[in-house]
Amino acid sequence: MATMVDYKAEKATWCPGCGDFGVLNALQKACVNLGLEPEQVVVVSGIGCSGKISQHFGGYGLHALHGRSLPAAQAVKLANRHLTVIAAGGDGDGFGIGMGHFIHAMRRNIDITYVVMDNHIYGLTTGQASPTSDVGAKTKTSPAGTVEQPIAPLQLALAQNCSFVAQGFSGNIKQLVSLIERAIQHKGFSFVNVFSPCVTFNKVNTYEFYKEHLVNLDDDPTYDPRDRVAALRRVAEANNILVGVIYEDPDRPSFEESLRGYPAEPLVRQDIALQAADYAALLETFR
């Protein structure tokens, strides 16, 4: 059984106190708790501070293009269904340049987990407005305050009927570990949005801010994550500032289960060479 030591990779280059440390830690811990060997896990990340997580994780990684972690991650999984595949990136990467892929990944429901490190800012490019920046947020590209409405990731996912939706906070590692574990175990596409404070460029959405305002669904034994309409209402009431498993539909067939001819054995293990009988049958279709 792998331990945290087996996941130890290069020391992360994030700023001290960065929320992404917590996400990395929680992701590694979740994999350890689920008994996953590091070589069975692939982290496909986008570009930005958060994108560096694939290099710090300690498994296999594909540090993909800005906004394109999801298309690559979905195919990594289809090519080898025995792998555990995590797509990861930030709010700019996933909800800005890569937004289209997010919607379609939810439609497709391939069995991967998407972790977004949401800090409401572009950090690596030193502090510009992001798609989740609050209205009025003063940044280098919005000196007078952002005038655009922020993306609402949870409502978006619920509206698109994503089969697993959760939100966590990198200031609450224990809960985040459990959310990621459940997301990985979910059969189909799972989405975990994580409030991951940027300590350098965002002085508003801080650890203190979240500690003060977050509603924790774990504290509400009556909350039913199977009820999508109730989930939408709850998210709206909390104005997105809540954590826990928001919604899950464990019965939805995954893409892999629904796809005609998709083999039980990983594609990567198939013998690719065609035999004489194959050619005979194929050539017959050209007569």
Partner: peptide
């Protein structure tokens, strides 16, 4: 032959999918 066809949401997704599968 156990092969998969993905209708991608756009050509950017299409090539990144092809790269992901080859990486695997």
């Amino acid at each position: 032959y156990g092969g998969v066809v993905l209708q991608a949401e756009d050509e950017i997704a299409a090539i990144n999918m092809a790269i992901g599968a080859n990486f695997s």
